[in-house]
Design a protein around this nucleic acid. Structure first.
Lengths: 144, 144
DNA sequence: TTCTAAATGCGAATGAGTTGCATTTGCATT
DNA sequence: AATGCAAATGCAACTCATTCGCATTTAGAA
């Protein structure tokens, strides 16, 4: 649903009221779409600098990402490990990562380990709306 | 084991080679011990300012916390919501939290939901050594 | 008591992210 | 197609957490 709205937005068919589809937003959107991993605002800014002839303002990137988040186009996440803030296009999947302590590679998990868990039971009066999980360890290349 | 080492460290019986048990470290340790929640470096710094006659340097607090983390005296964590970095005395338990998105209260979970899960199965060639988990939602006071 | 590596203080520097304000630009409406 | 204006951008200055270099102090081993 969100995804369909994003597609429409990109095709410039519809867009939420009071939202403009500028070239800056298109560029940020394209970078997020082409990325196969979550990106930080600075990473996005750097890629913009390389791919575009005209430079963008950093503040614009931050504002675009905030706007995208409000429109649910992207999901903002903080890596639990180092606190890095990254943005990821909302493709509908629910993704967790296994983080290698050696090379810091992030391997997306195929399935959410909570799919069959009933977490509500043990949190009493707490209403759960989401969760965040990171596994730590060593990838096959770093087991040496 | 870590806990015993911490106790010994505090009693000034043993301490890892090349590690000094200074009054600054004692003070930071005491504050962490008395705290019933994870604290940020700035929070610790502020409490030091109030409780001690002499002022500490902020950089010293950061360096102490880094050293404590390397010695596994404390655990460094990043809060999901706002990205705040906090430190918590390593009391030996394996703790996860439910974090209220409204009041930011952190409710420790009694049991680790992974206790009976075999995560290795779904990560293929990844060797898991640890994990971090945070649930978020709304506590009973904030459900309004 | 002496000696030295480790720890601290201080202040400057960094880096991520934000903000105020003047200027530009989608885009809805003529 | 021209107009009008709210929304978006650029820019530069700012905040805030954290780090770093370096001179000075100090814990604790010898």
């Amino acid at each position: 649903m969100e995804q369909k709205r994003m597609q429409e937005a990109k095709m410039n068919k519809t867009y939420p009221a009071g939202m403009k589809w500028t070239k800056q937003r298109k560029a940020v959107y394209d970078i997020l779409e082409q990325a196969n991993e979550p990106l930080s605002a600075v990473q996005i800014y750097n890629r913009l600098e390389k791919s575009e002839q005209e430079a963008f303002a950093v503040s614009t990137v931050y504002r675009i990402l905030t706007a995208f988040e409000e429109q649910h186009f992207v999901t903002k996440t903080t890596w639990i490990g180092d606190g890095t803030v990254v943005y990821e296009l909302n493709r509908g999947e629910h993704t967790h990562y296994a983080v290698c302590l050696e090379c810091h590679k992030r391997i997306p998990l195929e399935h959410c380990p909570f799919a069959h868990l009933h977490l509500e039971q043990e949190t009493g009066d707490f209403t759960i709306t989401g969760h965040k999980l990171e596994l730590y360890g060593y990838c096959k290349d770093c087991k040496a």
